[in-house]
């Protein structure tokens, strides 16, 4: 009798368990399916526009079929190079500051500033850099776009580099200090090399994060239908091209927007995956 009650309860609990399992598995499956759907569409639609001209020709006038997006590919590379040249030294030094003053009031203050910076919407960065760089320089430029992207990169890179510095065994530092080396040399010659791969990963992720940003470039890099290598002039970028082309009524540009999206996704994903596999090792 008693046994039966327990058995009944157990069956009910078991059933509930199975229901719950289904209730979480199905939505999780939807998420995975959506991801595959989006990726598949980018790959299938994007692959159609990949040809020689796409990579090596400049943009054609409005409504003309053909041409390519070399100006955007080169532009994105120039913008990312500018951004990383600015962001890497500052994030290294700021991360070192956090590492050296760990736990202090100032370091905690800096940390919360970094966290807050990370949450600033990227459109706001674009608006402010327009006032800070574009207006005084009297022109839209690759430089201003690079600066905007560097601010996108900074908080992410600072917190990643800080983490990798903190992973360096304290014994390394103590041993070197005990040998009488000045602290700055211990940092430069022992800590930084030991954290080297972490710094490299932070750089890679910083680039991956900034590569797809569009909003900070609208009012800074501005766009350019021609290939330009001039850092002081406006420049095109892959995300800008995607935005401009998909809004337009031209089928050829829609096609190219997918192609540019494929390039961008492949670039960002390979950076992410490469770093992901490195990290696991």
């Amino acid at each position: 009798m008693e046994n039966n009650v327990f058995a009944g309860q157990y069956r009910g609990r078991k059933r509930k368990d199975i229901f719950f399992r289904i209730a979480v598995m199905v939505p999780a499956g939807i998420v995975i399916a959506l991801l595959f759907l989006i990726l598949a569409q980018v790959v299938v639609n994007g692959a159609k526009s990949l040809n020689f001209d796409f990579f090596f020709q400049q943009q054609k006038p409005f409504g003309e079929i053909g041409g390519g997006i070399v100006q955007a590919i080169v532009g994105t590379l120039m913008l990312l190079a500018t951004a990383i040249v600015i962001a890497l030294p500052f994030s290294l030094l700021a991360a070192l500051y956090l590492y050296e003053h760990k736990g202090s009031k100032r370091a905690n203050g800096l940390l919360s500033v970094v966290n807050t910076l990370q949450g600033i919407p990227s459109i706001v960065i674009g608006v402010v850099i327009y006032s800070w760089v574009v207006v005084p320089m009297k022109t839209f430029s690759a430089l201003s776009g690079g600066i905007a992207l560097s601010i996108v990169m900074l908080p992410l890179m600072i917190s990643m580099i800080k983490e990798s510095l903190e992973m360096v065994p304290a014994s390394y530092v103590e041993a070197a200090l005990a040998l009488g080396a000045p602290r700055w040399r211990v940092i430069v010659e022992i800590v930084l090399p030991a954290a080297g791969s972490g710094i490299l990963e932070a750089t890679g992720l910083g680039i991956a994060r900034a590569a797809g940003e569009t909003a900070p470039l609208l009012f800074t890099a501005f766009g350019n239908p021609f290939l330009s290598l001039n850092f002081k002039g406006p420049i095109s970028a892959l995300p800008l091209v995607i935005y401009e082309y998909i809004k337009s009524p031209y089928d050829d540009w829609h096609q190219k927007a997918w192609g540019a999206a494929l390039l961008l996704v492949v670039f960002v994903l390979s950076l992410n995956l490469f770093i992901g596999t490195r990290k696991k090792r």
């Binding site: 006038p61 409005f62 003309e64 766009g223 350019n224 239908p225 021609f226 002039g233 406006p234």
Partner: peptide, 20 residues
């Protein structure tokens, strides 16, 4: 404009970037 500037580039080598 983009048509004109494309022709102008071919004729003179001057790149006129017009953002619509």
């Amino acid at each position: 404009y983009t048509k004109m500037f494309d022709e102008y580039y071919k004729a003179t080598g001057v790149k006129v970037n017009y953002q619509s």
